[in-house]
Design a protein around this nucleic acid. Structure first.
Length: 375
DNA sequence: AAATCGGGGCT
DNA sequence: AGCCCAGATTT
């Protein structure tokens, strides 16, 4: 294996993270938990020279690995932990996830963002129950074909879950390799991406692949950070071009910046007797599939038209302060309007549902409006 | 190749 | 205020 890989594995045994909720925990073989067979995993650590009381790593729960990998897409570890624990509490098994309603899944996802991830997660659970009898597929092409799983996530699942020799290329690996090789150009460019994949696959070892995969991510998360990398503690600084030339800050190259446009909308909050009207948003677009207030353009004509269309007797009760919410690609100015509504044909949900029920998605907006109104 | 899709943490 | 994060999908 490459020198980089062997050095990372040595470092991982001393400083790698082993306590994340989706990682298998160390347990005694007497505890009855399943363990790797020798053909599944070449285990080189955690063994005692004396037989019997050896500690072995428990077999990873692939459902947990998969769920965590999806949650961790563009989302930091500290943010994911609480969502992960709540999610597996509600859906302890892949089977229970497949049997749940999409709204129930989205409710557990609310606040995490990128809601297509949750819808694809649910789709994939159903596919695995139907096509693979509930067993997560172990063929790369089959994993890659599942909704919401791209090349890197497929590699991570097979490497971490089954110790297969599959490479990953997440933000950590990109940053580490960009620095080690002082790669020119931003990795939005396909040529740079291609080279990064080549390097990632070259360094991924055929033994202890799970540990290596965790190791290079841990290195990126704890030492080779975006700003102020701790090179004095780095196990591969001797083979790092950026360390040699002290050019760490230049890699990876900064992404060319783009200006974010601004948009404005009104959110119509129809209330009646302490109940709030919500409607399900289309899967396409922002907050896809979540429950939300009625949205329309923020001008008098559109607002009046939307109100009358919903209930001819409705009247505006209060204009709440406009607040700004920024997405990855634009600023959104939201104008919340409280409206007294008398229609009985509307779909109302008691406020309790906002906390405990399906339409959780709105909670984010509510808290923001409350926050904004207090200012 | 570029746009779309979030929310939170860090500087 | 800007950038980034265990990216994938669509256009």
């Amino acid at each position: 294996m490459s020198s980089l890989a062997s050095q990372l594995l040595v470092w991982f045994d001393l400083h790698g993270r082993t306590n994340l909720p989706w990682q298998a925990t160390y347990s005694s073989p007497l505890g009855g938990q399943a363990t790797y067979s020798t053909c599944d995993l070449q285990q080189s650590s955690g063994r005692s020279p004396l037989g019997g009381q050896i500690e072995q790593k428990a077999k990873p729960n692939v459902y947990h690995i998969w769920l965590s990998e999806v949650m961790l897409q563009q989302t930091q570890v500290d943010t994911v932990i609480d969502y992960f624990n709540r999610f597996i509490h509600h859906f302890p098994t892949l089977n229970s996830l497949a049997d749940a309603s999409e709204d129930a899944v989205l409710a557990q996802w609310a606040g995490l963002g990128y809601y297509a991830r949750a819808r694809n997660l649910h789709k994939t659970a159903k596919i695995i129950m139907r096509d693979y009898q509930g067993n997560f597929p172990q063929i790369f092409e089959q994993v890659l074909a599942l909704p919401g799983i791209g090349k890197s996530t497929a590699g991570a699942i097979l490497a971490l879950g089954f110790n297969q020799r599959q490479a990953i290329l997440d933000g950590n690996v990109k940053r580490v390799l960009s620095r080690v090789y002082q790669l020119k150009g931003h990795y939005a460019q396909s040529s740079v991406l291609k080279e990064l994949w080549r390097l990632a696959e070259y360094h991924t070892p055929g033994v202890r692949t799970a540990h290596y995969t965790q190791a290079i991510m841990d290195l990126g998360a704890t030492l080779c950070t975006r700003t102020q990398p701790r090179c004095s503690h780095c196990p591969i600084s001797t083979m790092c071009g950026s360390y040699k030339n002290q050019t760490q800050a230049h890699y990876p190259e900064a992404k060319p910046k783009k200006l974010k446009p601004s948009r404005s909308i009104a959110m119509l909050i129809f209330t009646n007797d302490n109940k709030i009207h919500l409607q399900k948003r289309p899967n396409k677009g922002i907050w896809g599939g979540l429950w939300s207030f009625v949205e329309c353009e923020d001008n008098v004509q559109s607002i009046e038209k939307s109100i009358l269309q919903f209930d001819p007797l409705a009247e505006i009760a209060k204009h709440l302060p406009i607040f700004k919410h920024t997405f990855t690609h634009y600023h959104l100015h939201i104008h919340p309007i409280m409206i007294n509504c008398y229609s009985t044909q509307a779909e109302f949900y008691p406020p309790d549902n906002l906390k405990f029920g399906v339409p959780k998605p709105v909670e984010t907006l509510i808290s923001q409006m409350t926050c904004s109104a207090d200012n």
